[in-house]
Simulated scan of single mutants.
Amino acid sequence: MAYWLFKTEPDAFSIDDLASRPGQTEPWDGVRNYQARNFLRDDIKLDDKVFIYHSSCKEVGIAGVAKVVKAGYPDTTQFDPESKYFDPKSHPDNPRWFRVDVKFEGKFSKVLPLSVIKSMPDITELGVVKKGSRLSIMPVSECEWQLLYASAVNAKS
């Protein structure tokens, strides 16, 4: 099992939106960055754990946890001319963009803020604490996962 952090803007799609979906499951689509696409296509596997990270909002940070329930497969939004994620250069025989399905596992009682994450001495390699890292999907080491998860669970409401 591997660990990941998926960024989302909560006014577009939040941890609460994931929790409210049928079966609490949703395709993680619309990713249009090649490095993040490669993670979705090649590295993210069934049963991997995912932090759902809210960005571009008042409370930036880790909001909850999901699990991958379907590994990488072509993102159908790339073929839909009505979708904002349509890619006219992509073809079903050779898709450019991939997605995974994630299932809600839990919401933290309080968002673990980026400011707290940055202050944790053992969290130095995580993309969100590095200057210039703008990837929407990034790997999380097992050690980082354990530290962040414990901090989020123990955060005071």
Rank of each mutant, 00 (worst) to 15 (best):
G127H: 04
K110Q: 14
A152R: 01
V69S: 11
S133K: 11
A150W: 01
A155I: 14
A66S: 09
N154R: 12
E26I: 00
A71F: 03
V100T: 05
F39G: 02
P139G: 13
K7Y: 01
K84Y: 04
Y149F: 15
D42C: 07
S157A: 13
D47V: 02
R41S: 07
E142V: 13
V128S: 11
S115Q: 06
K118Q: 15
P92W: 09
R96A: 13
D80W: 06
S115R: 06
K45N: 14
S109Y: 04
P27L: 00
S56A: 11
T25W: 04
E142M: 14
A36L: 03
G106M: 14
K58L: 11
R37L: 03
K131P: 07
V60P: 10
N33M: 02
D48Y: 04
T8Y: 05
E142Q: 15
V68Q: 05
D87I: 11
V116N: 07
L126S: 05
G132M: 07
K7V: 01
Y53C: 15
R37G: 02
F98L: 05
K7E: 01
A71S: 15
I123T: 02
L147N: 11
W145I: 08
L40K: 00
R41L: 09
F6D: 04
F6W: 00
G127T: 02
K67R: 15
D11W: 02
A66D: 08
W145Q: 08
P139E: 10
N33E: 06
V102H: 04
N154T: 13
S133R: 11
D93Q: 12
P95W: 05
L126C: 08
P121W: 13
K89M: 10
F104C: 03
M1Q: 10
A155H: 07
L18S: 04
S119P: 04
P81C: 09
K107E: 15
T76C: 03
A12W: 00
D11S: 11
K58F: 07
V69W: 03
Q24V: 01
